[in-house]
Every structure is written in structure tokens, then in C-alpha cells.
Design a protein around this nucleic acid. Sequence first.
DNA 1: TCTATGACTCCGG
DNA 2: CCCGGAGCCATAG
Length: 112
Amino acid sequence: MIETIDKTNFFERVYDVVRQIPHGRVTSYGAIAKYLGAARSARMVGWAMNASHTMEDVPAHRVVNRKGLLTGKFHFDGTNLMQQLLENEGIKVVENQIVDFEKYFWEPTKRD
DNA sequence: TCTATGACTCCGG
DNA sequence: CCCGGAGCCATAG
């Protein structure tokens, strides 16, 4: 529940949304930012993800840019760890880009 | 307080 | 869709 989150922490709001991403689905930074009411702060979402390393329940690998490109894969420990995690969820990834991105795309507002 | 930065996005060509 | 440029804004130093 977003309302129950400590709104003082922008990061935690992002983390909460990311945690709500269904298994086998992905979303974009902009979608999250928009859901948080800061559509122009997509970069902040990415920034928050950078700090998500301290979190364990934050599937940052399910968050990609609007093109479905794994822009943050280099921030993971392994070179292709992010891709492996996505493929493990049934998502096809080629050249650091999610195949049929629109098909796997998940919008926070839908929370399907 | 001010400046730099970024796992982004939008816009025009 | 690709490319270059501009905008946005929270956090770090």
C-alpha cells in the first residue's frame, strides 16, 4: 500500500512499486515515476535503483528503460546477471534488450 | 547554497 | 527506429 509507505523517503516509494512488479513482467522507469506522481523524475527512479543494492526484495532487473533496454545491467554484479534473471522469469532478452517488451510491460497503475 | 551527476524521457530531424 | 540536443529533479559533495 503506497499510502502506508514513509513518504519522506522517495526511494522507498520506488522500492514499493518495484516490489509490486509481478513475476515475469517488467516496467519502465518513467512508468514508475509517473505512478509516483513525478513523471519527470524517471531519472530519480533509476537513481533510487542504484541504492536498491541495499535492498533484497527489489527486483531491479524487472525495471528497464522505455525501449525495454537493460540499461542497468552493468550495475549488477555479473555482466549478464540482469539478463539471466529476466530469462529465468520467461522473458526473452537479446542484445541487452527485452523481446516483445510491450507484451511483458507492466504498468504500476494496473497492478495486474 | 551551489554545482555536478545520472539504471531517463521527450522532441525535432 | 536511430541520432543529437534539451529538460527534469532528487541526491551527493
